[in-house]
Design a protein around this nucleic acid. Structure first.
Length: 461
RNA sequence: UGCUCGGUAGCUCAGUGGUAGAGCAGGUGGCUGUUAACCACUUGGUCGUAGGUUCGAAUCCUACCCGAGCAGCCA
């Protein structure tokens, strides 16, 4: 008999003479003459309650059906006599597919996320992580849907890259040279020319520069893939390996870029609220009490759009004492960003037009000569979720910026070529996938929205 | 990397110089259409590691390891 996923069983419209489910036992409650077995197969947050009584041959050995064991049940689906569920399965046949003894680490009680992190191979079977990874899958789908519906081209940019000057952070070296006897050149340095690619190579920190190439052929494109940063970060919102979405649009300015970013975030929220309502309700109840209200609020209200210069003025007029006072020309500190999004505006904020001196070389210089067409989207609880800009499409200004950042134009020959042949205004941004997932689920630590998180010193699974 | 907090039973924690505790999990028995079921009894510990102070250290000191938070880096 064909298996039915528990998600469908729970949504059944009427009784069914025979249903087969397969899954893992969450808990068993024994009564006189029969037992309740709660079975989950990951298809939904809910468990199906299975009734096993003397009419079922397996009842005699019911004590073997412990929390964590895998089972295969066939029986009749009937209205439940008890509260808490509409349907229950009266087991005619119950098979123990794989047992689990008392050392099974997941108990029928609340566990801390830190503990569950140590058992990353079992935590997807918990309520919390079951829900997190269902939403993660849905969010990834929603991202592709958003861009595909708008005619954006999905580009696979390289994971291994030779450009080591993208300015986005420390990079992981990729090499096949033996660590203990790497070939050394005349200068005493490792001779990367003898390495696999004949030059130094690294894991990508961003697909942006390559995405720009395709924006300049297919107009609207996006990337969605893994990204690596070798920073020694110990925070709840940084990981060494994470996924990033980077749209890039030709014939687009900063205004269009900000519009896309804001629409994008709203549509993702709407999609997840519609298609993962059960799981979001779980997060709202057990993880982050105001989650649904906050998401609705973000959906309904326009994002606050404020220039960097205005933001500094707001901070200076706030009457607040910051560890680092806000000052024009300096980077905004986390405390500043938090104040703006969590206290002053109490909503997502799009900041734009940052001082040129604190931003990367590729951002387009504004006419004031002091700022560049950059933008960051900040959200309450997480901070920066999007960073983007209009790119410098004018070769002379780009060369100036390269010089100012002490970068060798020769290393950027193909990037410069885009400005030599059919250059167009274009813009894009990067959205941290995990940060978006944190925002949508209310989960506070990035390590808990990645199936197998990589952070400094941690790569067990 | 810096600062702060923490590490005690399988899990969540209490215990702040004098005989290591509770709840849950596990075991045994009972009870009940149960809902993290309930009731009784019960097993379970090198108190993160290594030194030191003390008659005596889970408790005080030092170093290290691990976890968390904040900051920086940024998505």
């Amino acid at each position: 008999m064909k298996r039915t996923m528990i998600r469908e069983v729970l949504a059944s419209r009427g009784p069914q003479a025979a249903v087969r489910v397969q899954g893992w036992v969450r808990t068993r409650r024994d009564a006189k003459g029969f037992s309740f077995l709660e079975v989950n197969d990951g298809s939904s947050r809910g468990n199906v309650q299975v009734i096993v009584d003397e009419s079922c041959p397996a009842f005699g050995g019911i004590e073997k059906f412990t929390t964590g064991s895998a089972v295969d049940v066939t029986g009749e689906l009937v209205p439940s006599q008890g509260k808490g569920q509409s349907w229950e399965l009266r087991a005619a046949e119950l098979i123990l597919v794989g047992g689990a003894d008392e050392s099974y680490p997941l108990q029928k009680k609340r566990h801390s996320p830190e503990y569950l992190r140590e058992i990353a191979h079992l935590r997807p079977r918990s309520n919390l992580f079951g829900a997190v990874f269902r939403v993660r899958s849905r969010l990834a789908y929603a991202i592709h849907r958003f861009f595909q519906e708008r005619g954006f081209l999905y580009v696979h940019t390289p994971i291994i890259t030779a450009s080591d000057c993208e300015g986005a952070g420390e990079m992981f070296r990729v090499t096949t040279l033996p660590l203990n006897k790497a070939p050394v050149g005349a200068d005493g340095e490792v001779d990367a020319g003898k390495d696999f690619f004949g030059r130094p190579t690294f894991l990508t920190v961003s697909g942006q520069l390559e995405a720009e190439i395709f924006a300049c052929s297919h107009s609207n494109v996006y990337t969605f893939g893994p990204t690596f940063r070798a920073e020694n970060s110990h925070t709840s919102r940084h990981a060494s390996e994470f996924w990033m979405i980077e749209p890039e649009m030709a014939f687009c300015d900063l205004e269009g870029d900000m519009e896309l970013a804001e629409t994008f975030i709203k549509e993702l929220i709407a999609d997840v609220m519609e298609h993962a309502a059960d799981d979001l309700a779980f997060f709202d109840q057990f993880v982050d009490k105001g989650l649904l209200e906050r998401l609705r609020f973000v959906l309904e209200r326009p994002f606050q759009r404020v220039s960097y210069t205005e933001a500094v003025a707001i901070l200076q007029a706030s009457g607040r004492t910051f560890a680092y006072p806000a000052e024009w020309g300096a980077n905004l500190q986390s405390e500043h960003e938090r104040y703006l999004t969590e206290e002053h505006f109490k909503s997502p904020v799009t900041l734009y037009n940052y001082p040129q001196s604190i931003k990367p070389f590729y951002m387009r210089r504004n006419d004031d000569g002091k700022t560049v067409a950059a933008m960051d989207v900040l959200v309450p609880g997480i901070g920066e979720i999007i960073g983007g800009s209009q790119r410098e499409e004018r070769l002379d200004f780009l060369d100036e910026a390269l010089a100012a950042h002490q970068l060798d134009p020769a290393d950027y020959w193909w990037y410069r070529d885009l400005r030599r042949y059919g250059s167009v205004p274009h813009a894009g941004f990067g959205l941290g996938f995990e940060r978006m997932l944190m925002f949508v689920t209310g989960v506070a630590n990035i390590r808990d929205v990645i199936p197998f998180a990589r952070t400094p010193g941690v790569a067990e699974f």
